[in-house]
Nucleic acid binder design. Sequence first.
DNA 1: TTGTATGCGTTATCAG
DNA 2: CTGATAACGCATACAA
Lengths: 342, 342
Amino acid sequence: MPTIKDVASRAGVSVGTVSNVLSGLATVTEDLRTRVEEAIAELDYRPNLIARSLKKRQTNTLGMIISDIVNPFFPEMVRGAEDAAAAAGYILTTFNTDYRVERERQVFELLRSRRVDGLLLVVALIRGDLSHVQRAAAEGLPIVCLDRRPEGLELDSVTVDNTGGVRSCIEHLIERGHRRIAIITGGPGKYLAKNRLQGYLDAMAAAGLPLDPALIRDGDFRRESGLAIAKELLTSANPPTAIFSCNYGLNLGVVQAVEELGLESPRDIALATFDRLKLTEVFRPHVTSVEQPSYEIGAQGTRLLIERIKTPAEGSERVHIQLPTALRIAESSAGRLVAAGS
Amino acid sequence: MPTIKDVASRAGVSVGTVSNVLSGLATVTEDLRTRVEEAIAELDYRPNLIARSLKKRQTNTLGMIISDIVNPFFPEMVRGAEDAAAAAGYILTTFNTDYRVERERQVFELLRSRRVDGLLLVVALIRGDLSHVQRAAAEGLPIVCLDRRPEGLELDSVTVDNTGGVRSCIEHLIERGHRRIAIITGGPGKYLAKNRLQGYLDAMAAAGLPLDPALIRDGDFRRESGLAIAKELLTSANPPTAIFSCNYGLNLGVVQAVEELGLESPRDIALATFDRLKLTEVFRPHVTSVEQPSYEIGAQGTRLLIERIKTPAEGSERVHIQLPTALRIAESSAGRLVAAGS
DNA sequence: TTGTATGCGTTATCAG
DNA sequence: CTGATAACGCATACAA
């Protein structure tokens, strides 16, 4: 592979001059510039970005740590990040943690050794031992948290209005005449689960509806728990008229339960869920959903990060961007035909 | 950030010694080794992988060029690649081309400037101007093609048995009593489209069934064309009893058409498609599908690539791995209740 | 305006 | 077995 030296000698100039035409900054004679450019073309020269990084102490590389690219929530987010990164001259290297903190810690080490300029982070854990991120941030590595905000850490973040999203959806169900609305959560102690449940509580309270503990059920964000809980709910003595799932995994289980019990939505039960999946929309039932702007989370997070790289945050003034969700009303949340019971 | 020099002076040894304990290779006295390790811990030293890359002329980085991570076919493939890369001490940087060759060319330049050790490539185009990949390969950059094989290029590849996958599915439909089986392809001149159509032709020929040109329709792999073509097929004078879609995008359109016409599968029409999407399986209709081992494509491609990096291919002996598909039979391909017509 | 020299943080070669 | 030193390819003062 030709180096800058080869270009220089072929063009009959010094390496300094070649470097100058490469960076385009310095004023260099038209004559020399064309000679250098010819040499570059003839040699098929490509500047060695590794050497450049070493010298300039910047890699133009962003690290991105997510849970699992196979989880359909992430591809759009990654794409948003990648597009924003590319637009600013950065590249992205992505890592999956499968929600395991020890893996997150490994990746942190690796990324810091590779001297990434900044980090996009979807934390594996909201609380617990976050010392690796704390230390990295303290040592000056720009970090932007996506989707979830770890507790007790001063970091910029881009999240979604989980509470408001659920609230608007529950309000919609109430408006359609539902009073016995069940919610399946992601389980206690989880960031997303807590915030989403709050939206339910808010909406119910605002409508003056009583809370039935039997209708507020803890799942674990996975299909299996949605299936089991939905079956319990639907076969109980006093079943709900609507079920809200706190993420799409749970919703899959609920949909499955409805079919396995020989029921149909919206005829027998109204359904709604957090997360929108365009791919399933042509199938039945057509489920009402709360869509989050995944692409924007990635894109805006990346733009924020790059801004921080260029001008580091002073003191503890951090920015927290919270993006709105959108309610996608579909057939599954049709209203009750008769007046609601007690 | 501390450097190897800082570690050396703190441990009272030379940089050479520190380098030796880092690489673990050279024999170094137990005494010195512990002193160095202590210094490393105390300074929280992390070797600068950029500098190491410059010196060793290897980045331990693999480039991966795909069409679009948002296309549900890719996340599993990327995940497979990432896992295999991580297991071998490499990291992956991913790029989307949106099927645009000019973008592919840009990414090639970038990746070569960054001195990636190898490339995982899902080509944007099967034929046409592939000079950038040809040149890169000729200059010694290890490249493994995934999913599609570009024409006239000597490159290792990992693909799927597209023809066999479709054939087995059509055979299944025939076995269920279907004779008028329609196929919606990805359009003429495309690699995947051609191979998949061949499976249909093979199965029909083997069963001695006549080919009806009206049932072999060119789509473009997207939902809209699936919708339009399916509507035509279903409302024609002599409609098919089964429709096979050559990818999942087309299938989405077909499913939509069936519902919009007030029909139901399998009651009124049998359905089957290439590509399996686990997420849609709980919804109705439950569509029979040909599943490809996406994760394995990525994983095996990566392992092959790393092998090539370590021991480059001699001459033109290239390896082409072709992975089998799996037929996932679901409700939508139920048999005909009455004997099939002519 | 252009050329020269130094250093970025490592690894590797070679004396000692 | 350990230490000094020369690259790796580039950017950047600084000198000419």
